[in-house]
Design a protein around this nucleic acid. Structure first.
Length: 910
DNA sequence: GTTGTCACG
DNA sequence: ACGTACGTGACAACG
């Protein structure tokens, strides 16, 4: 006997409303209110667990729920408009239900009640058990012995549900479900515009209907009714009573197309639903997905993982992979001692295709020995060497397979692609989709793209370092699984990532800029930059002499010795003991930052000494000593360029950071002399001239700004001329300098406070500058406003090339945070577009150098600057390439100009 | 690990 | 009344 089929019907607005008022105001990272959706889903899951329905439908009325829908308790008698925080969640829940494949029913002109009533009859007629979930007691009239009405009640410590079959209605209200309509006809309901009969309240209405069964019967026996007022009014207001009955009656024969087959419950834990939960921050619900998705198909992904322990088996697998039709072959690659300076050896490799994954690791010496001792054959024949793994990987690339890696730049140390389009970088793709994440581990990509829950590194290995896990025989299964998961995700995620990039208009950015850039950066890292070790050492020694003098002087002036590098101790000495004026507090004590000390320098020798001491120790520790530590065996420094770090799309540089080598102060700038071009070479250094302001001119299409650039004017002078209403030729240096600061401010997302601080003027004065600026460039002002408006509406800022930066701060309840969000919304498109442009230029310069067979190499980028180590004979050609490719990287309404210099070292090339 | 400071664009 | 210019990374101090 087949189990009884069960239909669950949900009153959408009513349950959403209950959830909204039952939960505190939850706001997700994007600033969306989510409490009602979240609560709705929890009620849905709970009810499904309890009722175990096989069919499910959610009904919504199309018309505004404030007007038509009968709300329970909270709304009774009041007609206040639906809260905006709730209204915005109506489309969200619909989107979620649709993503879960849940049947949604709406019909113009019908209330949810009528839909629910009609559907319950259809279900009942089909022989099903029906449950209607609603917060609205009016639905009790629909109860039968097959149709159950469930009403959630909010109680302390959770929700409880009251259930009513027909008999329960009778027990509770002394009337049958159909009689309940008549009760309502007498009693009325202001919330629903049902007038009822004056003078008859709930008690009286129930008594009358319990006695007579209907308003018609009661009307016939009007003279018998008590109290007399009811008897009189039921006659006097008879028409109104009959109208009320009509209004109160739920239509159970509404003309709707309702197909029970469409209501069948499939797998509601879909990828789309998962993504929505992720987007909206429903962490707890995600757990439910993990469990379900594990239950449904990933029950044991590890059963599809194999550990290949012989070279033969590994090579056979590579052979099969090479013949596979799989779109993307995923690879998990693990290197020993890899860095930008040196390609590590492959420790292990996992390859995944067709849903399976294979793991192979280079045999350790110990294993090689033991095998050699025990095996009868030639011993070395079937062992796996690091080079075997490398050959296998290269074989796949050579076979023209599409290969996906978590970190392609690292993989490039082990193989080469003849077609860059056949490689994929998961981290870079994931970064474009969500540049605010701090890292892009496999498990996050699996969760976001595949709705798959897999263990993280720490879940496998705890706090153990890579060296420990790869050499410990007990970890072999863990690392096999870990590597296979990585390969598996790499094979499955690219399609999803590409689809999302496409949807978000970033596919070209990925394929034509970021992906080729991986190759450019790899070559730049490999090339590195030469350093004169001895010169660096003597630079450091020179600093030490002066540092010691200063230190002595400071102790003498302070009257005691202390750690000058400790802001806490220094602050105490300067502002506490010596009682210097102008103290400013930080969380932990006095601030000793340069902008606090600077004004004091005029009057106090000790402050001058401290500032110089600071400057010199910075140069010594960060640059002299810091750089010496990272010189590789080849005498060069190989910085790592990070492609997945910044919120705006810029690159960053680490170990060491070569993007903050001193230049502003002469003494610091000297350090650039220790970076020489190699023998027979010069450095050619090109930097964009005011790229961000030019980008802004283009993006805003401000005619005055564009015109100033087209005429090749000094832009800061031109700005000063407009802002201060001074003829161009008569602009003073001071005015120009102020205008320059304003131009910078504009790019940062101007604030009067910030500008005032920068210029050392009052906030009012700064505001006047800003007002003057926007009066001079009105179009620019409108444009910046538009940026904020766009980001507020869409939740992100976007560059000329489609790169996005989310701006969740704009929806933050904190005023400061929102202000910050506004500046970000103004700055990100500008800084980001400039980043897009130089990335394009980098790829083009890199490719041109290769294509033209030049030996010169692009070795460094500093945001708006490219440095090419150039063979002397190639200088003219390199200059030309830089000029063409940098200027031609984007076609803007204003020309992109560059300044180019060359020299024997980095100092001379600037 | 966080904080304060400061180097760069 | 609040307390901000945008984006980074490295170092020393300190809990």
């Amino acid at each position: 006997m087949a189990e009884q089929s069960k239909l669950l019907l949900i009153d959408g607005h009513s349950i959403l409303n209950r959830a909204f008022y039952g939960l505190p105001d939850l706001t997700n990272s994007k600033g969306q209110h989510t409490n009602a959706v979240y609560g709705f889903l929890n009620i849905l899951f709970k009810t499904m667990e309890e009722e175990k329905p096989d069919h499910l439908t959610v009904a919504f009325d199309l018309s505004a729920p404030t007007f038509r829908h009968r709300m329970f308790a909270d709304y009774k008698g009041t007609r206040k408009p639906m809260a905006a925080e709730l209204r915005e969640q109506v489309p969200m829940i619909k989107e979620m239900l649709a993503a879960m494949g849940i049947c949604l029913v709406t019909k113009e002109g019908l209330e949810a009640d009528d839909l629910l009533g009609t559907m319950s009859k259809i279900g009942e007629a089909a022989g099903m058990d029906v449950t209607i979930l609603s917060g609205d007691r009016d639905l009790l009239q629909l109860a039968t012995d097959k149709v159950k009405i469930m009403i959630p009640k909010t109680k302390k410590g959770g929700t409880e549900t009251e259930s009513y079959y027909a008999k329960d209605v009778r027990e509770t209200y002394q009337v049958s479900p159909t009689e309940f309509i008549d009760v309502k006809a007498l009693w009325g309901d202001t919330a629903d515009n049902i007038p009822g009969v004056p003078g008859i309240g709930e008690k009286t209405a129930i008594n009358i209907i319990a006695a007579y069964g209907s308003i018609e019967a009661a009307h016939e026996h009007a003279e018998d009714l008590k109290p007399p007022r009811a008897a009189r009014n039921i006659v006097d207001f008879w028409d109104q009573a009959r109208l009320s009955k009509t209004l109160a009656t739920i239509d159970v024969h509404a003309k709707i197309d309702y197909d029970l087959a469409a209501a069948q419950i499939g797998n509601i834990f879909t990828d789309d639903a998962y993504r929505l939960c992720k987007d909206w921050g429903f962490k707890n619900i995600l757990l439910r997905f993990d469990k379900e998705s594990v239950d449904r198909e990933e029950k044991d992904l590890t059963s599809r993982f194999s550990h290949l322990t012989s070279r033969t088996a590994f090579e056979e697998m590579i052979e099969r992979a090479g013949q596979s039709q799989e779109t993307w072959i995923g690879a998990g690659l693990f290197l020993k001692d890899h860095s930008a300076a040196r390609a590590g050896q492959i420790r292990a490799l996992a390859i995944s295709f067709e849903g399976k994954a294979f793991f192979a690791e280079a045999d350790t010496e110990a294993r090689q020995l033991s095998l050699f001792g025990s095996e009868a054959d030639d011993g070395s024949g079937d062992l796996i060497q690091s080079t075997d793994l490398r050959r296998g990987l290269q074989a796949l690339a050579d076979a023209g397979k599409n290969l996906a890696f978590l970190d392609l730049k690292e993989a490039l140390s082990q193989l080469s692609f003849s077609d860059r389009g056949r490689s994929f970088d998961l981290q870079v793709a994931a970064y474009l989709l969500d540049p605010l994440s701090s890292s892009y581990p496999t498990e996050d990509i699996a969760r976001d793209q595949l709705a798959l829950s897999i263990p993280s590194y720490s879940e496998f290995f705890g706090k153990k370092k890579a060296d420990q896990i790869w050499e410990d025989p007990e970890e072999v299964e863990h690392r096999m699984h870990y590597a296979c998961y990585q390969a598996y995700v790499a094979s499955r995620a690219p399609q999803k990532l590409l689809k999302r990039l496409e949807e978000q208009g970033m596919r070209a950015l990925y394929e034509e800029v970021e992906l080729p850039l991986v190759y450019t950066l790899y070559d730049m890292e490999t090339a590195g930059i030469a350093v004169e070790k001895e010169a660096l050492k003597s630079y450091g020694d020179q600093l030490v002499g002066r540092i010691n003098e200063l230190e002595e002087g400071i102790y003498r002036e302070a009257g005691e010795t202390f750690n000058i590098n400790s802001p806490k101790q220094l602050g105490e000495v300067l502002f506490g003991q010596l009682g210097l004026p102008g103290a400013r507090k930080t969380k932990t004590g006095y601030s000793t930052a340069a902008d606090v000390l600077d004004p004091l320098a005029v009057n106090y020798q000790i402050v001058r000494d401290v500032l110089e001491f600071r400057q010199l120790t910075k140069l010594k520790s960060t640059y002299a000593d810091g750089l010496a530590k990272v010189i590789a065996d080849d005498g060069r420094i190989h910085s790592s360029f990070q492609q997945t770090v910044t919120a705006t799309g810029r690159l960053s540089s680490t170990e060491p950071n070569l993007q903050n080598i001193p230049i502003r102060m002469e003494l610091g700038k000297e350090i650039r002399r220790v970076f020489p071009a190699m023998e027979g070479c010069v450095f050619v250094d090109s930097d964009y001239s005011q790229i961000e302001l030019r980008v802004l001119a283009h993006l805003s299409q401000d005619p005055k700004l564009i015109e100033a650039y087209r005429q090749g004017k000094d832009i800061h002078r031109a700005t000063a001329s407009l802002v201060f209403h001074t003829p161009f030729e008569e602009v003073t240096d001071q005015q120009r300098s102020n205008a320059k600061a304003v131009n910078f401010g504009i790019v940062y997302g101007i604030s009067a406070f910030g500008l005032a601080k920068d210029l050392g003027i009052s906030r009012e004065e700064a505001q006047e500058y800003i007002d003057g600026y926007f009066a001079a460039y009105p179009r620019l002002h409108d444009y910046l406003d538009g940026l904020v408006e766009f980001a507020r509406k869409e939740g992100y800022a976007v560059t000329l090339f489609g790169r996005r930066r989310p701006v969740p701060e704009l929806k933050n309840s904190n005023f400061m945070q929102r202000q910050f969000g506004e500046r970000v919304a103004m700055n990100a498109p500008v800084q980001g577009t400039a980043a897009d442009i130089i990335k394009i230029a980098m790829v083009r310069v890199h490719d041109r150098l290769a294509k033209e067979g030049l030996r010169s190499r692009l070795i460094l980028t500093v945001h708006d600057e490219l440095l090419v180590e150039t063979f002397e004979q190639e200088e003219q050609e390199v200059r030309e390439i830089l000029d063409q490719e940098m200027r031609g990287a984007a076609q803007l309404s204003v020309e992109l100009e560059i300044d180019t210099h060359s020299g024997r070292n980095w100092y001379d090339a600037k």
